[in-house]
Amino acid sequence: MPRTDAALGAHPAEPVVQPARVQVPSLGIDVAVSPEGVDAKGALALSDDPAIASWYRYGPTPWSASGTSVIAAHVDSFDYGVGQFALLKDAPSGTEVVTTSVDGQTARFSVESVSMVDKTGVDWAAVFDRAGAHRLALITCGGEFNYSTGHYLSNVIVYAVPIA
């Protein structure tokens, strides 16, 4: 039966290496990353500015040993125009993705898959998985747009695996 010291502060949380930037050099993508939680509707909170991506701060980081680190950005905005993540849908397999932490560490990933998924059919528990094999998910919107609700009908989800 495992035993631990139950004193308050005996087990301080591991410091989290927060991503500050994500780049896809071959596509010319270079955006800032901000740690975010959920919005009032329970969706991932996103900046209006497509050049500022959100990293889901309660899930894995790009430096975690396991689970999916999720970084998402708007594909467009009335104020800022088309965002850089609009280029993700055409990323070939093997495209290199580089994340840089607040303290300057880098983690490199290789694109494994790009998919356009109807928003009503996304398994978000799988996307935000905290326990399985380590990977990076870059997410934006795409596909058809509903001009009356102001939402795209699909998400573009790019999975990338760590480059050893």
Partner: peptide, 19 residues
Amino acid sequence: HSNPGGVPAGTAGLVATNK
């Protein structure tokens, strides 16, 4: 924990396939 229920990552339809 549970997970975010979506990623509403576009607002303008600028790259819509049904533009």
